[in-house]
């Protein structure tokens, strides 16, 4: 079964492809998370106009196919707005980030709504500002609800990055397909299905790593709900007897 393994030279080129894949993933993830937070919060705004605008974005980003959005971004947008077409990496990342933001905003909105109303009321009673309420009270609690679906969404975006091979970015999918089309030139021929299986396994491994990272943060978030071990200064009064 050593046939399943490719040559080290090919793995070196796949590693370069993996770096492109991870680069696109990181860029679109950052953009996606920013858009998710922004539009997720805007969806709950008191102002009709803001709510409507956020809803329009969410519906657009989720309604349009990511592959179509990617091609619009890579081919139509540079011509329409006179942007340099060479920067496919950025254009592709923006397309995937826009896509992720639409789904992410709904996750954030749902999670914020899941935080009991009393938490916001207590924040008002303690006179926190709206931003403080969001940052210290609502989002930390929403995090528990956000992380699991965000992990899944990130894996969806990882899968989506394979599409950038279609607009000539040399990611994993691109390089694997190149191996196949160049196979005629290769001295030893690997069956095509093994090439693709290798690519799939690489994606699978990356997905598992993403999974692990999100699990780690889920555990950390949940740990906030357990007691702290920080030492307290000694009490100058004897502990009251009334407490069990």
């Amino acid at each position: 079964m050593d046939q399943l393994i490719l040559s080290s030279d090919r793995y070196a080129r796949l590693w370069e492809g993996t770096q492109i894949t991870l680069g696109v993933l990181a860029a679109s993830f950052v953009l996606g998370v920013v858009l998710s937070l922004l539009f997720g919060v805007m969806r709950l705004s008191d102002r009709r106009f803001v709510r409507g605008f956020a809803l329009a974005y969410v519906e657009f980003a989720r309604g349009i196919s990511s592959i179509v959005l990617l091609f619009i971004m890579a081919y139509a947008v540079p011509i329409l707005f006179g942007l340099p077409q060479e920067n496919v990496f950025i254009l592709a990342s923006v397309a995937l980030g826009l896509n992720m933001g639409g789904y992410g905003a709904e996750i954030i909105r749902g999670a914020i709504e899941s935080v009991p109303k009393g938490q916001s009321e207590a924040s008002v009673a303690l006179n926190l500002t709206n931003m403080q309420r969001l940052r210290f009270i609502v989002l930390p609690q929403a995090m528990r609800v956000i992380l699991p679906p965000m992990g899944n969404l990130t894996i969806e975006i990882l899968k989506g990055t394979a599409l950038v091979s279609l607009v000539s970015l040399s990611d994993i999918a691109f390089r694997i397909d190149l191996f196949r089309t160049n196979a005629a030139l290769a001295e030893t021929r690997t069956p095509d299905w093994i090439l693709y299986l290798n690519a799939l396994v690489i994606y699978f491994v990356i997905a598992q790593i993403i999974n692990g990272i999100f699990r780690y943060f889920e555990r950390r978030t949940n740990a906030k709900y357990e007691s702290r071990n920080r030492p307290l200064p000694a009490s100058d009064v004897a502990p009251a007897g009334m407490v069990k």
């Binding site: 894996i155 990882l158 899968k159 989506g160 990055t161 394979a162 599409l163 091979s165 279609l166 994993i172 999918a173 694997i176 397909d177 299905w193 693709y196 299986l197 690519a199 799939l200 994606y203 699978f204 997905a207 598992q208 999974n211």
Partner: peptide, 12 residues
């Protein structure tokens, strides 16, 4: 299947 790209699956 869930964690790998549909595109590469189609190629496969």
């Amino acid at each position: 299947i869930r964690s790998t790209p549909l595109l590469v699956q189609l190629f496969f």
